[in-house]
Design a protein around this nucleic acid. Structure first.
Length: 314
DNA sequence: CACCAGGTACTGT
DNA sequence: ACAGTACATGGT
């Protein structure tokens, strides 16, 4: 086990803020996080001064995966433009944006469309069980997330409960397989050199946010929102601002008048505040790290508006 | 049995 | 460009 002293980190908020679907545990003890073919066992010290972790793969860069290389203070300062967002940040201070592997992130968020988090998790586990390989670490057993080439049986994929998304995932898996030099998942098959930054390093990362988004959105099952999730969670584009129903509600509630004013400035007689408008406004409002702001707002909204536990107990 | 859930693709103006 | 609508599945 490794000990890592790290400030400005909230493991629970980071894992449970909806960026990642494959984790087990609730913060009381160790979490088991599954990424690709790696299992990470990790918990945070009581006083929050650091983390204790182990990983099934020596070459997996846990620190990078957890976003611990980010200049946290600088990012927080940059997005703290007003008291409203500052309150959301205080609520889950230490939340980090993870650096996931692009293929798994893409596949996961294709499954997420028009669904809910418990079922998304269930679908992804089923995909891993159907096409991945059995892996184990410290007594915890599960299945690796399959490489795109491994998702080669459509009938089997249909069994995973994805509904109409099965077709999208299957086709996207094919595109990743056939364009491995572009989407390059380079897993260094022989040396097991797990490299959790690929797509982004080789191509997309060199593009502007707008250009990269255009490319990702070409994938079937990937629209504006999922594209932003991919770019933010796995390609280092922190100006991506995924707008889902939660963010739509939160932004309308918190910045309703500003949004209408922003729409008016653009000549849009929009009574309705569309997703595109919200994203553009967020980039203006929170700056180039607005993706971080999105993650705080999302977790803030979801943890706050969750139904309170039954009050009929003594 | 309606209704909802981290939207997307397709259609029509 | 922008609104409407169908879409699979599983849980209340």
């Amino acid at each position: 086990m490794n000990m890592l002293q790290i400030r400005d980190f909230n493991l629970k908020a980071t894992l449970e803020s909806g960026q990642l679907f494959r984790y087990h545990g609730s913060g009381d003890d160790f979490y088991y996080v599954v990424a690709g073919d790696a299992i990470i066992k990790i918990r945070q010290n009581r006083n929050g001064s650091g983390v204790e972790y182990g990983c099934s793969s020596d070459s997996f860069d846990v620190k990078k995966f957890l976003g611990l290389n980010h200049s946290y203070g600088k990012i927080i300062k940059s997005i703290s433009r007003d008291e409203k967002i500052a309150a959301a940040i205080r609520n889950h201070y230490g939340l980090r944006v993870l650096e996931q592997e692009p293929w798994e992130c893409t596949a996961s968020f294709i499954c997420s469309a028009f669904s809910n988090i418990p079922r998304i998790k269930q679908c992804i586990e089923k995909v891993a069980m159907a096409f991945g390989s059995s892996i184990e670490f410290d007594g915890f057993t599960t299945f690796s997330f399959p490489q795109p080439q491994q998702i080669n049986d459509f009938a089997k994929l249909k069994m995973c409960g994805l509904g109409y998304r099965a077709k999208y995932l299957f086709e996207t898996a094919r595109i990743f397989s056939n364009n491995s030099e572009y989407y390059s998942l380079q897993h260094n098959s022989a040396a097991s050199g797990m490299c959790n930054r690929t797509l982004s390093d080789l191509h997309l990362r060199k593009l502007s946010y707008e250009e990269a988004k255009k490319r990702v959105i070409e994938l079937p099952g990937v629209g504006s929102k999922v594209a932003d999730c991919i770019l933010l969670f796995s390609c280092g584009f922190y100006e991506a601002f995924p707008v889902d129903v939660w963010i739509h509600r939160a932004m309308s509630r918190m910045y309703g008048s500003e949004l209408r004013e922003f729409a008016a400035e653009r000549g849009l007689k929009a009574k309705k505040t569309g997703e595109k408008l919200i994203g553009d406004y967020a980039r203006l409002r929170f700056g180039k790290y607005c993706g971080y702001a999105q993650q705080f707002l999302f977790h803030h909204a979801r943890s706050g508006e969750k139904k309170p536990s039954p009050a009929h107990l003594p």
